[in-house]
Simulated scan of single mutants.
Amino acid sequence: MPELSYVNVFARDIVALSGFYADLFGFKEIEAIRSPIFRGLDTGRSALGFNALDAYELLKLEAFSSPSGVKFLLNFDVASPGEVDGLTPVAVARGAQLVKAPYKTYYNWYQAVLLDPEQNVFRINHMLE
């Protein structure tokens, strides 16, 4: 079966944006593939999700739903609800914008929805039992 190797995000400032995620989640740079136009981070594993348009309202992203708006979101799973609560203000302090504060979803996850410093959507998640 094929495996997803990378999710690439186009960024105005690859150093700053890759640094934001490296600092927030402790990801290490893959220095062997560094170039003037690319930075890679080792995240440990990857997944690709597809959301119906109804997810804009669910995640309170209606303002970004225009054809040129949000097209994907990055999901970062953590070990506990406490980590979601702890990382959310750290992300904001490092330049993220809080869209939806940590909450329990109808599908039994605990998550926060944020925009990174370049306005890309990401969630910090923990799947509850």
Rank of each mutant, 00 (worst) to 15 (best):
Y107S: 11
L115A: 10
E29P: 00
E57D: 13
G40W: 07
F20V: 01
D116L: 09
Y110W: 04
V78H: 03
V113G: 01
P2M: 13
D77N: 15
N108I: 07
P117Y: 02
F25K: 04
A52V: 03
S68M: 09
L74V: 08
E29H: 13
G49S: 13
I14A: 07
D42T: 09
S46R: 12
L4E: 04
P117W: 02
G95C: 01
T43G: 01
E62G: 13
Y21H: 11
D54Q: 11
K100T: 14
G40Y: 04
S65M: 10
Y110G: 01
E3H: 14
I37F: 11
Q97W: 06
V90F: 02
R123C: 13
A32M: 14
V9E: 00
P81I: 05
V113S: 03
P89M: 10
E29L: 09
D116I: 00
D54I: 03
Q97L: 11
A96F: 03
L128T: 09
I14E: 07
L87H: 07
L48S: 10
L98I: 02
D116V: 03
S18L: 05
A93W: 00
Q119V: 10
N75P: 02
S68L: 13
L4V: 15
P102I: 05
E83Y: 01
R39D: 03
R45M: 11
G44D: 10
R39K: 15
R94S: 09
T105S: 12
Q97A: 12
V78E: 03
V84Y: 03
V78L: 01
V121F: 06
S18D: 07
L61P: 02
N8V: 10
D116M: 06
V9K: 05
K100C: 11
A32P: 07
S80H: 08
A91P: 00
G26R: 08
L4K: 08
P81Y: 06
F76N: 11
